[in-house]
C-alpha cells in the first residue's frame, strides 16, 4: 500500500469538508473493495476519508411505499432486517448472498454501488427496482446512475447518503455465482411494480449492469417463465473472460431470467 493521510470524520458535514480539503481523496466505507485495491497498489489516493463508522449513514426505514436504506448500511444488516424481509425479500436475499459472512459484516450498500463493479449484485437491485439514489448534492435515478464499467454519475466530491427502493409487487434475483469469487457470472433481477416490469442484468455486460428490454416487453405481454425462456440475448457487448465466453453469458441470462420469474411467482 502507498502512504496516505487518514481522516475519520464524526459527521457527514465533516466528511464533505475533509474531501474538499484534500488533494486526491477517496472515501473509505467498508473497505471490502478499496483495501484490496490499495494493497495491490492499483490506486494511490492522497487521503482516505473514513465514513465507515458514521452512524448517521447506517439505517433502514420502511416508510410509505418504500424502503430507504442508509449508504453505510452493511450487507449483513440488510440481510437480517425484518423490514426488508417483509417488504422486499428479494433484496434481503441478494444481500445475504454477497461474498461471505466477513465481507457482509463490513461491506456497505453505498460502497457497492459507488464502485459499480460489473459483477456486483446491488447495481442489479437498484436498476431492477427503479431505485432513487440520494447524494449530498442531488437525487439520481438508478437509470442515470450506472454509466459504465466501474463508472457512475457521481462527482468526485459527492457522497451517497441513502437509496430508496420502492416496494415491488413481485421480485426475485437469481445469480449464477463464480464458484471462486462468488461474484456474479450473471445475475438477473426481475420485478413488477408501480414502474411496470424491469429485468436488470449484472455480471454480463461490458459496460456493467443493463436492462434487458426484450425480456421486459415479453413479460409485459405474459408474466411467466416461458415468456423469457424464448428470448435469446445477443452476445454483442457481453463479457468474455477466463470464466466464460460472451455466448455462454448470453445463454445464462435467459436461464437466470427464467428462474427469477419462477421464483418471483
Amino acid at each position: 500500500m502507498y502512504q496516505f493521510n487518514y481522516h475519520r470524520p464524526k459527521t457527514l458535514d465533516e466528511a464533505v469538508k475533509a474531501l474538499a480539503g484534500a488533494d486526491d481523496p477517496k472515501l473509505l466505507a467498508g473497505g471490502q473493495t478499496l483495501i484490496p485495491t490499495l494493497k495491490q497498489r492499483l490506486a494511490m489516493p492522497s487521503d482516505l476519508v473514513d465514513i465507515g463508522s458514521l452512524t448517521d449513514l447506517r439505517y433502514i426505514k420502511a416508510e410509505g411505499d418504500a424502503l430507504t436504506i442508509g449508504a453505510g448500511t452493511k450487507h449483513a444488516d440488510v440481510a437480517a432486517s425484518a423490514d426488508v424481509m417483509t417488504h422486499n425479500p428479494a433484496l434481503a436475499r441478494l444481500a445475504d448472498n454477497i461474498g461471505d459472512p466477513a465481507v457482509r459484516h463490513m461491506g456497505t450498500l453505498g460502497g457497492s454501488i459507488a464502485n459499480n463493479d460489473p459483477a456486483a449484485d446491488y447495481p442489479g437491485a437498484c436498476l431492477g427496482l427503479d431505485a432513487k439514489i440520494h447524494t449530498t448534492k442531488r437525487l439520481i435515478e438508478a437509470d442515470e446512475f450506472f454509466t459504465g464499467m466501474f463508472e457512475t454519475a457521481l462527482e468526485d466530491d459527492e457522497i451517497i447518503k441513502e437509496v430508496t427502493f420502492p416496494h415491488p409487487e413481485k421480485a426475485a434475483y437469481m445469480k449464477f455465482a463464480n464458484p471462486a469469487s462468488r461474484y456474479a457470472m450473471v445475475g438477473v433481477f426481475v420485478s413488477k411494480g408501480p414502474w411496470g416490469i424491469r429485468v436488470a442484468v449484472t455480471g454480463a455486460g461490458q459496460d456493467g449492469v443493463f436492462r434487458a428490454s426484450e425480456m421486459e416487453a415479453a413479460l409485459e405481454k405474459n408474466w411467466s417463465p416461458d415468456a423469457v425462456a424464448n428470448v435469446k440475448i445477443s452476445p454483442d457487448g457481453l463479457n468474455t473472460d477466463m470464466h466464460g465466453s460472451a455466448e455462454y453469458r448470453a445463454h445464462l441470462i435467459t436461464v437466470m431470467a427464467k428462474r427469477a420469474v419462477e421464483a418471483a411467482g
Partner: peptide, 22 residues
C-alpha cells in the same frame, strides 16, 4: 482465504482487509 478472521465488536471480519485505524 479467511486465515486472518478476527472479531471486531463481536463480528467476524477479515483483519487483512481493514486498517488498524478503522
Amino acid at each position: 482465504c479467511g486465515a486472518c478472521v478476527v472479531h471486531v465488536d463481536g463480528k467476524a471480519v477479515k483483519s487483512c482487509t481493514m486498517l488498524a485505524a478503522q
